[in-house]
Amino acid sequence: MSATHDDAPVAARVRHVEALLEQRGWLAPGEIDERIDAFAAGGSPAHGAAITARAWVDPGFRARLLADANTAIGELGYSMAGGLQEQQLTVVANSEDEHHVVVCTLCSCYPIALLGPSPGWYRSEAYRSRVVREPRAVLRDFGVELPATTRITVWDASAESRYMVLPRRPDATEGLDETALAGLVTRKGLIGTAVV
């Protein structure tokens, strides 16, 4: 990936194109910096974690989330309409018998509004090619070994349609409040490459 390249030439080319566009009025002065700040302040896995914790403590919310995620996340102040067009969100719930995993085989479609930028492995050809063919082997790459009886469903995201996994609530967490529960939820848990 980029970390192994010498990326000084591309950095200079990006600066050049930016300056050219600004000079010709296609970019406003300072617009790029504002957008970078806005991006940094945008989605984060904490949003997905908050949604998960609410679903764990509130069966009504859980039912609404699984039936119509776009509307339900609005109850917590989240939205999939931050881009130019609203993305369809589907939340898929893990159970004792079924485990869900999300991928975008064609590129990197991901619920950025709820999880922030995707991890590099999610965008890698290795993950995209293999998880739809041998999900158990890929889960093993992540140290996850599921019982042979657990059914695994892989969801392939697209530009218009995004997925988030609702992990199972861990055992012995009855005493935890919603905030503490949210603290247990990981980004990989929300993609399906970890159990929570």
Binding site: S2, V10, A11, L21, L27, R35, I36, F39, A40
Partner: peptide, 26 residues
């Protein structure tokens, strides 16, 4: 095999953030 990068940053270099911002603006 799928390899995870420990403590992966959102961007590995400034220019990557600029590319994302540039694309959003256009």
């Amino acid at each position: 095999a799928v390899v995870e990068e420990p403590d992966e940053p959102a961007f590995h270099a400034d220019w990557e953030a600029h590319v994302v911002a540039l694309n959003a603006a256009l």
